[in-house]
Amino acid sequence: MSDNTIKMSSIKKNETWLKVVIYIVSIFFSLMTLFPFVMMIANSFKSTYEIQQSTLTLWSAHPFQNLAKNWHIINSKDFHPFTGFLNSFIVATCSTILNVYFSALTAYAITAYEWKLRDAFNGMIIAIMMIPSTVTTIGFYQMVYKLGLVNKLSMLIIPSIAAPMTVFFMRQYLQASLSMEIVQSARIDGAGEFRIFNQIVVPLMKPAIATQAIFAYVGSWNNLFMPLILLTDKDKKTLPVMVSLLNGDIYKKEYGSVYLGLLITVLPLIVVYAFLSRYIVEGVALGGVKS
């Protein structure tokens, strides 16, 4: 009996120690994650002089005056947050809509119909996922250049009609959730195939569409490689391309405004994440398991 209680209490002690370690490490990682962002926000409100004294202080003597000054500096040079914001917004919104709609359509084509080339097509989609974007770059640039379509945002939007990853995920979802009976009964009611897709299948796929839309949006919003190559006109630059200007010599001594510029680019993402984080994290989990 007493032997047992000693054993139990030692297990309990170990349990407590383990928990302490878990919390210490988790909190350390949380701080590590937050540190860069806290620095970014705090330093946006500071003057160059204050930052030179110390980057770490979290409060400034004249926060809003400094913020206004940093904002002024940033706008007086090549960095135009609103232009970048608008361009990114156009590209991300349009390409997300095309991406999820046509991916849903393609996934439906694979799941609901029996056609001869279906399996070949399905296999092809999985193979395409392996093609690294780099190998398309030079050919794509030459093609676009020849057609005189450099600096056209549409060249970043239209390709998202063919998004193999999204198709793959949506096919998984449809296979699990589409019942052909509903489709059949709609057919009996005389609905055309296209109408069935738009009015029955799309609403049915809402959860999958929502998750994929978030990832498509974030992916498009953050994309740097292609826009950096295609967009040379300063009125056409998207936010990540605009951000890369902050690394240039023109902002070398303007510490505060660089931090402010960075903050502006991530603010929409942080706001979106604050509201949708639960769904996003769940969505990642879903994508990983299914793949």
Partner: peptide, 16 residues
């Protein structure tokens, strides 16, 4: 919290 850096623009994080 741990997932958050993944959705932030890599370009921004690099310059930060």
């Amino acid at each position: 919290l741990f997932y958050m850096p993944n959705i932030i623009t890599a370009a921004t994080i690099a310059i930060l």
